[in-house]
Design a protein around this nucleic acid. Structure first.
Length: 636
DNA sequence: GAGCACTGC
């Protein structure tokens, strides 16, 4: 940054400032250093906090700034991410994940220990960043000494400025190489085939430089890599060597690492990637980008409480981010496999912010515990759908976290301490009474590790499925997960032999350790039920998501939706009469994932306020009672 | 009988 003095002047004059700058403009590393050196802003020994959407970014930026300023990482400059606090009493500049700062509001609602808060990569609009916007705007009103910087890429800075009461926008010039963009003349019917043809054309006709292809998921990536390899084999020595490498988040780490090895002389590297290469990792040497213009996006239907993952055209902002990946080391080229007209008229300007596409159970609980009672009127930059808030409130009421006035209960206050979904925190708290907290902690940790524990490579499907069957125990999937956790011993060798994802296991262990560490604070004693699965089944998944067998499928007890047991479930063939599911996902059908068998009588024992014996009668021919429970207005 | 983009506390 050339204009450090100007920037400092602007910061002294305004409480909130929006900073617009491309990645590579040095805003993330330089600005906090200017602030640190400036005595006007730093007469008090308060911290400068700088949030990042990703853990690795927080760590690596902190390491770089520590090096540049010649201090030891963790002293004056440090970072704080889940499972890892690398700060000390001397820390002045702290890089952290946005979720971490959000959690800090629970212990320090006015962020008193900070003199400056920087929200970096604001344009990404992560769920946590969006909540921070509302909270920070609010505290800035009474903390006039707090400086707030909102740093974003070029897009949307006007909207940020507008949201923060017309805060001035300070622009920092970027340093990036130009990228030429090419469109197709007509739409492509088969974009996978078009990708393969484009890669080969680049390989044969273009100057040296590696190539990056954006696809939507594992299956597409595998298909594309196979097609490329097959055609290169057929062309044989007529063309130079092409090194084809897949990358996606679920790929085992040793295979991921291959994309970073240098391209052999005379050869060309092609990396076939998901969106992981759009923001999360950067590959050096990319000169060509091929963009078919699609991505998989999560969406959430609050009327049914169901999530789904759908292939959608990506936004113009996302397409531009992808193109930018070609211009990091030299001038590059981006080949878009859609027409210029489609780019202009058919693609959205920006991606829909996450807050509008996700379940908000834990966010609502967090805001309630910060004393924000009227969520409908909370200052969201883009408010979530009304139904999403209503469903979250309904769920929290059912779990006993809110009373009928929508106020936080003592139970809710304890639940908010745990960094997991409300259903999981409720079951952990309930496990105390049923003397099985030891097991329930493990189950909660395993359920909160979203991506699959079971590794199922295409060429070893039979082996993988056999390995998985060996973990089957009576009762349901929660107990299978508990069994896997207890057997694993966290050995890479064991995981490999049993087709278990080691990364997921390590994560489950970290989560479990963290949760166990919080048990004292919420006054839950850690005890084991010793082999008895009944108490575990009474509390796991908790009673909120129940379904009963009903001609060929299941019906949810509270909303009478037709749903099915997922074919990967250990209960797929058993089809028990009553069960509890952890989540609903819509793919080819409405599926319940992670289910456990229960006795309907338990529901009256565990949740008498929520179930009436009439709803639990077993004569399926009988007309179902009308929906009971609280209405929207009562919950407000 | 399915098929899981990416993050984060």
């Amino acid at each position: 940054v050339d204009s450090g003095e100007d920037l400092l002047r602007a910061i002294t004059q305004h409480q909130i400032l929006v900073i617009e700058g491309e990645t590579g403009s040095g805003k993330t590393t330089q600005i906090p250093q200017y602030l640190m050196e400036d005595v006007r802003l730093h007469s008090r020994r308060n911290e400068i906090g700088c949030t990042q959407p990703r853990r690795v970014a927080a760590m690596s930026v902190a390491a770089r700034v520590a090096e540049e300023t010649g201090v030891k990482l963790g002293n004056e400059v440090g970072y704080s991410i889940r499972f890892e606090d690398c700060t000390s009493e001397r820390t002045v500049l702290k890089y952290m994940t946005d979720g971490m700062l959000l959690r800090e509001f629970l212990t320090e609602p006015d962020l008193a220990s900070y003199s400056v808060v920087i929200i970096d990569e604001a344009h990404e609009r992560t769920l946590h960043t969006d909540i921070l916007f509302g909270l920070i705007k609010d505290i800035a009103r009474f903390r006039s000494d707090l400086k707030v910087l909102v740093a974003s890429a070029t897009l949307d800075t006007e909207r940020f400025s507008c949201f923060f009461d017309d805060a001035p926008v300070f622009r920092i010039p970027g340093r990036r190489f130009p990228v030429d963009i090419f469109y197709t003349k007509a739409p492509e019917a088969d974009y996978l085939e078009a990708c393969v043809v484009s890669v080969l054309q680049i390989h044969v006709t273009q100057a040296p430089g590696d190539c990056l292809v954006f696809l939507t998921g594992q299956e597409e990536i595998e298909a594309c890599c196979e097609m490329l390899q097959e055609r290169c084999r057929r062309l044989g020595s007529k063309i130079a060597e092409l090194v084809v490498l897949p990358i996606y988040a679920n790929l085992p780490s040793d295979m991921q690492a291959k994309i970073f090895s240098p391209t052999p002389p005379g050869a060309r590297k092609v990396v076939v990637a998901t969106n992981i290469a759009e923001t999360s990792l950067t590959i050096d040497g990319i000169i060509y980008v091929i963009d078919p213009g699609f991505c998989k996006q999560k969406s959430y239907n609050a009327r049914t409480g169901m999530e789904s993952l759908i292939v959608t055209p990506c936004s113009r902002a996302s397409a531009n981010q992808r193109a930018g990946r070609a211009g990091r080391v030299a001038a590059g080229k981006c080949f878009r496999l859609y027409t210029a007209w489609a780019f202009k008229h058919e693609m959205e300007e920006t991606t829909i912010p996450e807050i509008q596409r996700t379940n908000l159970g834990n966010v609502v609980l967090l805001l309630k515990s910060l004393g924000i009672n009227d969520l409908i009127h909370f200052d969201f930059m883009d408010p979530p759908p009304h139904e999403t808030l209503v469903l979250a409130l309904e769920q929290l009421y059912a779990l006993g976290a809110l009373n009928h006035l929508g106020e936080l209960t003592k139970m809710g206050r304890r639940m908010a301490e745990l960094p997991v979904d409300p259903m999981l925190s409720k079951m952990i708290l309930a496990s105390e009474q049923y003397k099985c907290s030891e097991e329930v902690l493990t189950i909660a940790a395993m359920l909160s590790v979203n991506n699959s524990i079971f590794y199922r490579p295409k060429d070893k499907v039979v082996h993988a499925d056999n390995a998985r069957m060996n973990f089957t125990v009576p009762g349901g999937d929660h107990l299978v997960l508990l069994n896997v956790y207890n057997q694993s011993g966290f050995s890479t060798q064991w995981c490999y032999e049993n087709f278990i994802q080691f990364r997921s296991m390590r994560r489950a262990r970290d989560v479990r350790d963290q949760l166990e560490g919080l048990m004292e604070r919420i006054e839950v004693e850690v005890v084991s039920s010793l082999e008895d699965s009944v108490p575990i089944r009474k509390v796991t998944g908790y009673f909120y998501h129940t379904a009963r067998l009903s001609k060929g499928g299941y019906k949810t007890v509270k909303h009478q939706q037709t749903v099915y047991v997922h074919p990967n479930s250990s209960l797929f063939e058993e089809q028990p009469r009553w069960l509890i599911y952890h989540e609903l996902v819509f793919t080819t059908k409405e599926f319940m994932r992670q289910v456990i068998e229960i006795d309907s009588g338990w529901l009256l024992e565990v949740a008498p306020h929520y179930y009436k014996s009439k709803e639990l009668e077993d004569s399926s021919s009988k007309k179902m009672p009308r929906k009971q429970g609280k209405t929207k207005d009562e919950l407000g």
